[in-house]
Write a protein that binds this DNA or RNA. Structure first.
Lengths: 235, 235
DNA sequence: ATACAAAATTCATCTGATTTATTTACACTT
DNA sequence: AAGTGTAAATAAATCAGATGAATTTTGTAT
């Protein structure tokens, strides 16, 4: 039927993952070249390349022509791992992405606040300041903002959220442009409120601040969208 | 540095996606064979195959030797899209997956309850009954259970959750074995409570029932884990 | 020591050939 | 005429070789 037995390329991809784990290769480490690796795996070069391609699309490897094959830096985001490509209504997609963030981020912030050490709170302060600097410099702040939220996700201690959060924020970035300077004052203020909550290990305050932050963002985006397409409100 | 310009295989993969969208191919539709497709895309067979391999690993295509290339049935789950492979502490992974479910599912249930039509509530009743049948038949209920939760995710109207929920449940299934018949009575009872809440469009009741359900599940799993490894509690 | 050029390394891509799996067509049996 | 089994056609799987393009390394000249 649709079972499709495991192909040699798939088996090889698993073999490469096993190789990475067994040899304790870390981010950025270089793998043997194609010829060597294909001998190691006992397959032809084409097959090996297909396996590599699959791992590249899963954001596990990067390949650079003329240089080599490397273990991915985990900072990147795999290409549409959640299948947003085939969601037709992008307006609704963004709206739902924001709704989803509102489900998890306040809870994550609360978790993080209850666990944050003074050193971690200090890190967050630095990251929040960097976002503010981006606003002042007029450059895009989305990368710095993503780092701020990603660090909170890490501090929460949950290992799922740090994997997921970048995907969500990246997807939002892909479809909208949040360079509204209107958001500047509010964002800076709320980020500081969140940092304060972390310093005081105040879970409730962190959750509230994050909630307010997201509500504010969502409303700003909604207004911006209505302004840009006045006769075509989100369905 | 690590930029790595877009490869021809990646471009080809995008071309194939465009082909699927332009030709309005639906799930299960067959694509032209390798030779034809490589001509269409203007690349060699190897390059085309690498592109296909990338799309297969993203769960967009399936390939069957001797038969053809098909658009994926969306029911399947892409292979580890969130990178759980490299999380070393699987105990903590499962624990955090459950924690994550507790963040979103009650909210999703509440959303769904506020929107559910009588017909949709009826569907959920059928799905809940099917889970119960699996328990009675002694077969694995995880697939039926996943369908129940997936349908709730759909009814919620949020387009993110239905993409994500199967990943979470699939990952949990991969690492633990929930065939405890101890869960039978509780699961059936709670599923019915959720269905009732849907019928009455009672968001609060749905959220509460889901919360209780997940708490019960988590505690059961925790006890089972402690029993199986008494000297080695989760860190 | 530095800068530039040549060489070596490595991935990118194409093409052809052989093998394996699936489907289709056709003849044979009942 | 219906069903069955075999042969042919189709399509993907895999390997191997050759050429191209990007990067890194090496060597030489200043």
């Amino acid at each position: 039927m649709t079972s499709s037995r495991k192909s040699l390329a798939d088996t090889t991809a698993e073999g490469i993952i096993k190789y990475i784990i067994d040899n304790k290769l870390k981010e950025g480490a270089q793998l043997p070249n194609e010829t060597t690796l294909s001998s190691l795996m006992g397959v032809g070069r084409s097959t090996l390349r297909e396996a590599i391609r699959a791992l590249v699309s899963r954001n596990i490897l990067t390949v650079q022509q003329g240089s080599g094959i490397y273990v991915c830096h985990n900072t990147g985001v795999a290409d549409d791992p959640l299948g947003f490509t085939f969601i037709e209504n992008k307006e609704k997609l963004v709206s739902d992405l924001l709704e989803f963030r509102m489900m998890i981020e306040p809870r994550v912030a609360a978790l993080a606040a209850s666990k944050a050490t003074p050193a971690q709170a200090g890190e967050l302060l630095q990251l929040a300041n960097r976002v503010a600097e981006c606003y002042d410099a007029g450059t895009s702040h989305s990368e710095a903002d993503a780092l701020f939220h990603a660090r909170i996700a890490e501090i929460s201690g949950n290992v799922i959220v740090p994997q997921l959060e970048p995907l969500i924020m990246h997807a939002i970035d892909m479809f909208i442009d949040i360079t509204h300077s209107e958001l500047k004052e509010e964002t800076i203020r709320t980020h500081m409120a969140i940092v304060n909550a972390m310093e005081n290990n105040d879970a409730i305050a962190a959750q509230d601040a994050m909630t307010l932050h997201l509500i504010y963002n969502r409303d700003r985006l909604r207004k911006a969208r209505e302004k840009s397409t006045p006769g075509n409100p989100a369905q």
